[in-house]
Structures are given as structure tokens and as C-alpha cells.
């Protein structure tokens, strides 16, 4: 039963980790380019989850019930509208503060986070929203001493979709001109702008892509847990940021790795120690990692310029 139990936790941890990883990519991209903690990103994720739910319900009302089609349409719709949210947030709350003092964008981001949370609460109500399982069932991987390890279709779908999206995203960053300008801006924003790169546009696109990924995470979260409320963005946001820092902020593979680690730590801690202290475990590990590896796991070591 021991191995089986651990295997089940591993499966659950990876699923959760994928969701954190997707959100963490958004944090790390924005941080890499403009060096700010986009505090509202967790709430963008929450908005994505709500939009996914609205889309699923809307499609059901329109009679589109074939699950793969419904999910694909939901994904597209949620990603598109959430991306619009990401763009608007950047345009309204961050762009006017570009090049300003470092704390102003942070407070503005916190303000945006509060705004989004309460906006969703006001528009969609404060109660938790449960939906029925969209993809029921699964496969039984093994049975040991009466404990069945189950890999649900949902988990397979989540991990597969996440990997596919991350693959597309990696291709986008590594191989396209857009990705090149993004990396150029990350290296040196001022220089990139001197070389004729439209930095405002690149930054906007970064927010758009980050928000779209967060929307995917929102859909996955909705499918996995089947219940959302307006407050999910805060905790998930902090954990995803923790994941980004853990992996080495600014590093895209680091964000996914950090997400996986946080997901696994959380699930294993809940399974073997206590559910109540799972977040304490994640945060303590963050603090410990930062003390001994101040730039995270895959972060570039900084040589102090004197």
C-alpha cells in the first residue's frame, strides 16, 4: 500500500504542479522583462477560471455537448478574454508607471489584485461555484493491499494539455521573431528600444501571453477541483510566484520546475503530515531555498557589480 499511496500522490502532485507551473510562467515572464511582481496575475488566473466556467455553461446552453469540442472552444474563449484582461491591466495600471519608482507599480498591482477580486465577487457573487465533472472516469493503474491507484482521464487531459501548451509556448519564445524581441527586452529593455524594438508592444504581448497561460491554468483548476470562487487567485498566485522564485525567477523552465516542486511538496505534505500546514511547508521551503540558493534553482547566478 505504501508504494501505491505514494504513486497516487505523485500523480496528484504532478497534476497540481502543472497548474502552478502555468501560472508561474506568467510571473516569471513579466518579472524577467520589467522586473516587477505582477501581483494581479493570480487574480488573472481566477478570472480565467470564471470565464472558463461561463464558457462551459454557455456552450452547454447552446447545445454543444461533445466534450472535446466544448473544451477546445472553452480554452480558446477563456484564453482570448483573459488575455484581454491581461492587456487591459497592463495598459491601465502598469504602463503609466513604467520607469517610475519601484514601489509605485507594486502598489498599483496590489490595487489591481483587490479590484479584480472584488469585481468578480460583485459580478458573479461570493458563493463557491461547483460544476459537474466534465470528464468522468479514469484508469486504475495498480491495486496494492486494497488501495487503488487511479489516474483519472481528467488528470491525463490536464497534464497532456499543459505539456502541449508549454511546447507551443517554448517554440514561440525560442523560434519566432516575437520570442526574439521578448528575449531581447528581457536582456536589456533600454538597449532593445534603442535598436528599434517596440518595447511597449512587446511588454503588452508578454502580459497577453502570460494571461492566456493563466487562463489555461484556470480551466485546468476548474476541471480538476470542480469548484471555484473569487478568492482562489490569491493563494494560487502566491504559490505560483513562490514556484517562479524557487525555480529561479526569469527562467521559463525554472517556473515549470518550481511549479512541479510546489505541487509535489503540497500534495506529499498533505498526504503524510498535515493538510493544514501544507502551505506552511511550501513557504518554508521557499525561505530555505532562498537562503541557500538566493537565485533559485535554475536562476542565473548574479555577480554583484561594484
Amino acid at each position: 500500500m505504501d508504494y501505491a499511496y505514494a504513486l497516487q500522490q505523485l500523480i496528484n502532485g504532478v497534476t497540481l504542479g502543472m497548474i502552478y507551473g502555468l501560472i508561474a510562467v506568467g510571473y516569471t515572464m513579466v518579472y524577467g522583462i520589467i522586473g516587477m511582481i505582477n501581483f494581479a496575475h493570480g487574480d488573472i488566473f481566477m478570472v480565467g477560471a470564471f470565464l472558463s466556467m461561463i464558457a462551459l455553461l454557455g456552450l452547454a446552453a447552446l447545445g454543444i455537448t461533445w466534450v472535446p469540442l466544448a473544451l477546445a472552444l472553452t480554452l480558446l474563449f477563456a484564453a482570448a478574454i483573459t488575455a484581454l484582461y491581461g492587456w487591459t491591466v497592463e495598459r491601465v495600471a502598469y504602463r503609466p508607471l513604467r520607469g517610475s519608482f519601484r514601489l509605485a507599480p507594486l502598489i498599483s498591482a496590489i490595487g489591481m489584485s483587490i479590484t479584480l477580486q472584488n469585481y468578480v465577487q460583485v459580478s458573479q457573487g461570493a458563493r463557491v461555484k461547483p460544476i459537474e465533472a466534465v470528464i468522468p472516469g479514469g484508469i486504475q493503474v495498480m491495486n496494492q493491499g486494497g488501495f487503488t491507484v487511479e489516474l483519472s482521464w481528467m488528470q491525463i487531459a490536464i497534464v497532456a494539455t499543459t505539456l502541449a501548451i508549454l511546447a507551443v509556448f517554448t517554440w514561440l519564445v525560442k523560434r519566432t521573431p516575437l520570442g526574439r524581441t521578448m528575449r531581447a527586452c528581457e536582456q536589456d529593455l533600454k538597449m532593445a528600444s534603442l535598436l528599434g524594438i517596440d518595447t511597449d508592444r512587446t511588454i503588452s504581448l508578454t502580459f497577453v501571453i502570460g494571461a492566456a497561460l493563466a487562463a489555461v491554468a484556470g480551466l485546468m483548476f476548474l476541471l480538476y477541483y470542480g469548484v471555484i470562487d473569487f478568492y482562489i487567485g490569491f493563494i494560487a498566485g502566491i504559490k505560483a510566484f513562490t514556484a517562479a522564485v524557487l525555480g529561479g525567477i526569469g527562467s521559463l523552465p525554472g517556473a515549470v520546475l518550481g511549479g512541479l516542486l510546489i505541487g509535489l511538496i503540497e500534495v506529499f505534505w498533505s498526504a503524510y503530515f498535515s493538510v493544514e500546514y501544507k502551505d506552511v511547508a511550501a513557504f518554508s521551503i521557499l525561505i530555505i531555498v532562498l537562503i541557500f540558493m538566493p537565485t533559485g534553482i535554475l536562476g542565473r547566478a548574479e555577480v554583484e557589480k561594484v
Partner: peptide, 12 residues
């Protein structure tokens, strides 16, 4: 909601 918006506006 208003509080959050005011924070953004004041910072801008």
C-alpha cells in the same frame, strides 16, 4: 472594489 481602483488611480 472602489478601494482597489483608488489605489491604482492614486499611484498613476
Amino acid at each position: 472594489l472602489i478601494f482597489g481602483l483608488v489605489l491604482v488611480v492614486m499611484m498613476v
